[in-house]
Nucleic acid binder design. Structure first.
Lengths: 212, 212
DNA sequence: CAGGAATAGGTAGGACTCCTATCCTTCACC
DNA sequence: GGTGAAGGATAGGAGTCCTACCTATTCCTG
């Protein structure tokens, strides 16, 4: 029989496997441009509307500001990003994509490339399973202080598990609608971080929901 | 509404997030020794019974033999692994942990440390969701040639989805038993890789199974 | 308003990761 | 015996990541 300990070992091995997979994917050049993982991640982030400050990027990527500085320097040398002084704080600068950077960023985020290919063959239910598992893990990591700067539903002030029907067990106070696993967001622009208490409550409730 | 494209973008963002999380975890020193991610992965692998050859490790880790060679050199310098000539092939050497390496490996695989902490608060059903999602992804990656050297149930000759009841929808020909999502293996010592055809079939059937 | 603490971000130095290309040795097979 | 393939190491170079600093601002508090 499989013991709980073995199960957790298997799950941990799975996470390692996935992490390696994601990282290795970035070096490869199957369609999308093969650029280093961190640089690709920065370009993907900056592809979203609105400029970002350096520390915001570092936070979301889970690296130290110093590490990020390396990658930003490389991206600037490649003329894919540009810095402009932040009018609100003269210590900071705002980062945005150049024209060339926008092109690369779009390629990177194209579902036909890279990781997107992994997900192409999956139906809505598969995606739901995946998003659900991700929410659980990231939420747990957040609670343990292992993740920062995430913008998941579970970690959001607007999120209410148990809000709707069995098909649509979640509820978002921002859009005012119930929704299902497949519509969970890992990176939502409208997210407002929940406090520790609400996160713990969200997590507990979320875990009691039976998958469809 | 959320479009399928957006769903896939969210899922991809989730995978990126998880990958960063796993990697960042390795650098940290919360209990378990903080060693570089690849070296930690090698030590974990070698913690399983039986010596391994270099290319087997590289395959499972998804890195080039040259990259692996770097990490092996570092680990050998730290006296955590030892090479011995492979009697079956004098070009190759067999890698195994030293006494000191065994200690580190055990700490790394302890569920109370590192990634294990992420999974500690999860019940059997949560783990099942996670293992199920992992199988799907790794299986898909395998089919696309993005992953090699994996030892998942889905990619195994002995695996039969749809073998049992709703509670235990899978069947393993090796142990001759039905089992559920929570007992799926991502890294099974008894695994025998399936051929392309069987993998595709396993994948298709697996995806039709409704999660419990 | 001064002066200290905190914050945004940079540099320096060093370890680690990862690649491609190249080389050597050994094996497998004709 | 010779040829090609396989296991693996090395070289060279780019990228990633850390801990320490360092500077310029901003924020706070007396």
């Amino acid at each position: 029989m499989t013991t709980p300990r073995q199960q957790r070992e298997q799950a941990a091995a799975g996470l390692e496997q996935l992490s390696a997979l994601v990282r290795a994917q970035s070096w490869r050049s199957d369609g999308s441009p093969a650029l280093p993982p961190t640089q690709a991640a920065v370009l993907r982030l900056l592809g979203q509307p609105g400029p970002l400050r350096a520390f915001q990027i570092a936070e979301r990527l889970g690296v130290s500001p110093a590490s990020l500085s390396d990658s930003l320097k490389a991206l600037e040398a490649k003329k894919w990003i540009a810095r402009s002084p932040d009018p609100a704080d003269r210590r900071a600068s705002l980062l945005r994509l150049t024209r060339a950077g926008q092109v690369v960023s779009r390629q990177l985020r194209d579902p036909a490339n890279g990781l997107g290919r992994l997900l192409q063959g999956m139906n809505e239910q598969d995606i739901g399973v995946l998003l659900r598992a991700t929410q659980l893990l990231v939420g747990q990591a957040q609670r343990l202080g292992m993740a920062t700067g995430t913008r998941t539903c579970l970690g959001c002030r607007f999120f209410k598990p148990y809000g709707g029907s069995a098909d649509q067990p979640h509820f978002c106070d921002f859009i005012g609608k119930a929704f299902g696993d497949a519509e969970l967001r890992v990176d939502c622009a409208e997210q407002l971080p929940a406090d520790t208490e609400q996160l713990a409550e969200n997590l507990a409730r979320f875990r009691q929901l039976t998958p469809p």
